[in-house]
């Protein structure tokens, strides 16, 4: 297979898009992606489909796909660092779903989507243990998934409040990208939370990361919470982006030559609440 620098040229530029997952569109007050597309096509250039193979696509996603509109496939059910997770049955189903959806690529949070075996009750989302060996295991899983499906696979910087290991997040993902020779989905809100947890400025360390690896960005709002006096940011996808997320987004969007797609994650909010921030997000990256 050719090198990432060559492969990335063949990936389509999708522009600004939105995300969904099974049932999200049915929640009260949820974003109507079809209405968004009709009213503001530039804000809904593509739909990122959050998919568990066991559930497949919901009716909203199926209608989008049936209309032949652009998509990406965001997995919600694989621990890339666990070879047993890439079982033939799951791989075949994922490939069928992604091809059927016409996905431009696969992507998804590169952490633990479940503990133990894949099971309906084992779901969670944890960041990886930040060590060199864990980065290597993750990279090997990315290569295996890419080779098995024929799709480009973009690991996403995952959310979390607890980070363990002896590497920082971005050097960890730099190692993953180098070993897997892959691109990255950088979630600006997740990174902002990580930087806050570690007591750092939002863009600390980004200059040392090879930003030509960044193919996709996520931006989303967050809400401050508190538990026992401990203040934290919950990644709840409200439509108001926090300043640190804006800082990261502006920094990376201006410096990522291979950036092809930006998702504004606001799937559980009404259209009217999202239009103004969509315009702001679009203003940063044209």
């Amino acid at each position: 297979m050719s090198r990432f620098a060559e492969r990335v040229r063949s990936l389509p530029r999708l522009g600004l898009g939105v995300s969904t997952e099974y049932g999200a569109g049915d929640a009260p007050g949820a974003l109507d992606v079809a209405a968004l597309r009709a009213a503001h096509p530039a804000y809904a250039g593509f739909l990122e489909l959050g998919v568990e193979v066991a559930k497949g696509l919901d009716a909203h996603a199926a209608r989008w796909v049936a209309a032949g509109l652009p998509t990406t496939y965001h997995f919600l059910d694989v621990n890339l660092d666990e070879p047993d997770d890439l079982d033939p049955t799951w791989l075949a189903a994922l490939t069928r779903l992604a091809r059927g959806a016409g996905a431009a690529w696969l992507c998804g949070d590169a952490g633990w989507w479940h503990f133990g075996a894949r099971d309906r009750n084992h779901m969670l989302l944890l960041p990886p243990v930040l060590t060199a060996s864990a980065a290597d295991a993750l990279a090997d899983g990315i290569v295996a998934l890419r080779e098995a499906t024929g799709f480009e696979v973009l690991p996403e910087t995952p959310p979390g409040q607890v980070f363990v290991g002896d590497l920082d997040l971005m050097p960890f993902f730099a190692r993953v990208c180098e070993r897997a020779d892959t691109g990255l989905l950088l979630d600006c809100a997740h990174l902002a939370i990580y930087q806050r947890v570690m007591g750092r400025a939002p863009t600390d360390g980004l200059d040392a990361f090879p930003l030509d690896r960044v193919v996709e960005l996520h931006v989303a709002g967050g809400t401050e919470g508190e538990v026992d006096g401990y203040r934290f940011v919950e990644d709840d996808h409200v439509p108001r982006l926090l300043p640190a997320t804006w800082d990261i987004y502006r920094h990376v969007a201006a410096r990522a030559p291979n950036l092809k797609a930006v998702v504004f994650e606001c799937e559980r909010n009404p259209l009217a609440a999202c239009v103004a921030p969509f315009a702001q997000v679009a203003e940063v990256w044209r």
């Binding site: 243990v129 409040q161 607890v162 980070f163 363990v164 290991g165 002896d166 947890v197 919470g225 538990v227 026992d228 006096g229 401990y230 934290f232 919950e234």
Partner: peptide, 18 residues
């Protein structure tokens, strides 16, 4: 070393998902 990693975060960070 690994035992040190799991207690390095603020203990309350483990409890943010109530």
């Amino acid at each position: 070393e690994e035992r040190g990693w799991v207690v390095r975060p603020d203990r309350r960070a483990y409890a943010t998902d109530v």
